[in-house]
Nucleic acid binder design. Structure first.
Lengths: 242, 242
DNA sequence: CGATTAATTGAACCTGGTCAATCGGAGTGG
DNA sequence: CCACTCCGATTGACCAGGTTCAATTAATCG
């Protein structure tokens, strides 16, 4: 028994734009089921072409890709509300994998319906493109981070971004939020070595800016952290939810 | 007097998918003019919200963004057929700038018509999303490059990608193509220093794999270069042209 | 001809990587 | 309940890929 879209708990969060009743009903027909996965599970595999698209209902994960010498690049971190599989849906093949890092619940859509969505529901098509543009925007920022920021700036930047994203989803209590990744995940996301990532985290803790232990992130001074990260604190703009 | 879409010289190249006559006529109505720029000109500015979208008819450029300490990250290189301004068109604001590196001719579209495009022409809307997905794919690869590849691998990778892109556009003659960027552009694209980029280029030349001088790129051994770059030689898939 | 921009080269230095060992917690089997 | 094993986190020592500084060359331009 799957949740009705109209009762979807995500829709109420201020991180997401509201849909009209009619739009919600359409998404309900688009939806073909729900998927539940355990931590560590691979939801989408690089190079594969799955018949499904997903929206994350709860839980967190990572997108990553591997190069032929075995190294790994974490593309970004997956949060509730994220739309997965656009690449497979449009290009026919995923360019990265998606792995669960916690228990996850996913809303499942049928890839073959994407075209009918474009044909019959331009506003939803627009939303998909909107999400793709946001993703592109974010990847550009990440590129600038890995390419230009120092290790300390990079780690600080990642923490600011993760924290703001979490806050927009109501996951923050008392400057704390759950961050169920490993230091290796973070290292591979920032193009740093595991060892140096660890030492950099120690330094941020020592500076009393932020600490991350036992899968929990605590931010002590967001503004100062952002300053170190060469960025500014900006609320995440509400996004469409599919 | 601007070119009629139906006579657009780009459409004939095998890098692009064919459109039906009806689709071409629609694009003709969507098109509002042409823009010509000189090398160095800024076509779109980071943070601005321009009323225009562009398709590159000829010439090359770069997309880049600056961080608050003055450093610059080149996001990628702009080729004929590229669609510019999607971010401003959808998100209302560009997250990066676009600068011309040669004389350029651009096809101009009106941003306010984007919505009508989604409403009335789902196949074109689909194409826009397709392009956004390709862009996302490419940025992921770039991320893996900057994050995981060594300097030699990175520069080799960039050359392979640029060469393949150029070849798909018919810009290659005898393993040569025009590459009107500076070493600084390349350095900022790969997150390397100018000096080290220069030395790495020397090494690739010394290895008889590729050389780049006087704005011309010459590839001597594409397969071997790709091997150094930890990648494979894959033809660029034909893309929609807007 | 001076001024500016891009490319090139050498040398010193340092951020961050590699290697290696240890620790602590969670799970597992005896 | 303890021994054993894994895995992630942590720390120190050493090292190198790549940065920074600095100087020179070459080409273009008013």
């Amino acid at each position: 028994m799957t949740t009705q879209c109209r009762y979807c708990p995500l829709r109420r969060k201020r991180a997401f734009l509201n849909l009209s009743r009619e739009e919600i009903e359409f998404m309900q027909r688009f939806k073909t089921g729900e998927l539940t996965t355990e931590p560590g599970a691979t939801i989408l595999m690089e190079g594969s072409s799955t018949p499904q698209l997903f929206t994350v209902l709860s839980g967190m994960g990572i997108r990553d890709k591997k190069l032929m010498n075995g190294q790994r690049q974490v593309i970004n971190f997956v949060f509730p509300g994220d739309f997965l599989g656009l690449q497979a849906g449009l290009l026919g093949e995923m360019s990265h994998s998606v792995e669960a890092r916690t228990h996850m619940r996913l809303c499942v859509f049928d890839r073959s319906e994407v075209w009918s969505l474009f044909r019959n529901h331009p506003s939803r098509a627009f939303d998909i493109t909107w999400l793709a543009a946001v993703e592109e925007h974010f990847l550009g920022e990440t590129l600038a981070t890995i390419g230009q920021r120092t290790a300390l700036q990079s780690v600080a930047w990642a923490m600011v971004k993760l924290f703001l994203r979490g806050r927009s989803l109501g996951m923050v209590t008392n400057n704390h939020m759950s961050l169920p990744f490993t230091q290796r995940d973070m290292a591979d996301a920032l193009g740093l070595s595991l060892v140096h990532t660890n030492k950099t985290l120690s330094k941020l803790k020592e500076l009393q800016l932020a600490s991350w232990a036992d899968k929990r992130l605590q931010i002590n001074d967001l503004d100062e952290l952002a300053k170190v990260a060469l960025t500014t604190v900006e609320e995440v703009t509400p996004r469409p939810l599919l």
